[in-house]
Amino acid sequence: MTQLPETSEKKLGLVIDLDTCVGCHACVTACKGWNTENYGAPLSDMDAYGSNPSGTFLNRVHSYEVEPRAGGCSQTVHFPKSCLHCDDAPCVTVCPTGASYKRQEDGIVLVEEDACIGCGLCAWACPYGARELDLAAGVMKKCTLCVDRIYNENLPEEDRIPACVRTCPAGARHFGDLGDPSSEVSMLVAERGGFDLMPEQGTQPTNKYLPPRPKDQLPDMDVLSPALEPVAGEPKGFLKWLDKALEAI
């Protein structure tokens, strides 16, 4: 049913650290690789070698420039984005077929492809661009939170995490239960001030973003700090200092 569960037992999701993401796109293709071979129809690529290639991806990395309000030089932020597994997921309630649903046990939002008519309405309802209709299969595709990995008994325990998290070289992606305030991800969110995307949409996303840490904080030093106090007035003095300093070691 496309009714949303009152609440889910767990709230599994991702925490993405914008202070650490270098914009390498590893999570993008790892996701494509896993999800093309696994859950549902392969993620197709149209006009794959032609003039206007366009394929289905469940995770994409944008890059922004931010001009600090306080002045100073522009900052660059790499910004990965996939389904945020919203608590109040509008993509689910609009679905006419019941193909879209949110799991009660862990809050994962999924599409049951056999039931999907490919009307595209859920993609319209999602504020985040997290759903893409696969043009070859005609069904809606979205991040599954790697539901076929995280519980997969054919994988070693340590690999029961999403493909994008496993591959992220910078360790900018974290996976866990955001419904449990004592989980590592929840603590990270609390500590670093994790935030929601477009909170005004009222979707209550599960995924959280950690803000970039303050940048360019070293002051322009007009006078030399004590740390750089010259040891001597003129070059000859330097040699004297050297001799003394060597004596001390």
């Binding site: 293709t29 790892a30 494509k32 070289p169």
Partner: peptide
Amino acid sequence: VAYIEGNRDHPVNKGVLCAKGSSGI
């Protein structure tokens, strides 16, 4: 070849792969 992922035991990458490595297929 169905899927390529990083080798966790490997001294260089300890399981991670970059965008190219993950697209090896």
